[in-house]
Design a binder for these strands. Structure first.
Length: 105
DNA sequence: GCCATGGCTAGTA
DNA sequence: GCCATGGCTAGTA
């Protein structure tokens, strides 16, 4: 596995319950500010095998990015169960719930 | 060629 | 709406 992919895995694993990170933010922390698509791939392909908190990753606008209805519902339910409010358009308030490893972790 | 992105531009109202 | 992006995977040779 590439070091970048390894870093992405570690960063995702490090997101605490009740907080979220964005795809681009994770890519940046892992050393590839424009490598958000690889974060997508990691989540899509490796969430199950690595037990990743995949539901704590949202897009740059703070929205649930996933299109599949069932997964979308699951992500919303998991976030709300951790105390993260999700509005009826799938939006999370990044200003309050974004996790930044450097600053607060 | 795929993927659950993201940032910028073009086109419309 | 376009396209750079990074690594994986399937398909071909």
């Amino acid at each position: 596995m590439e070091p970048y992919t390894q870093r992405v895995l570690e960063i995702i694993k490090g997101i605490p319950a009740g907080r979220v990170m964005t795809y681009g933010q994770i890519a940046g922390e892992a050393g590839h500010p424009r490598g958000a698509r690889q974060v997508v791939r990691v989540l899509h392909a490796m969430s199950r095998a690595h037990g990743l908190p995949w539901h704590r990753v949202v897009n740059a606008k703070g929205e649930i990015a996933i299109m599949d209805d069932e997964l979308r519902f699951t992500q919303t339910a998991l976030l709300e169960s951790e105390g993260v409010p999700v509005d009826d358009r799938g939006r999370i308030e990044l200003a309050s719930y974004r996790y930044t490893p450097d600053c607060d972790g």
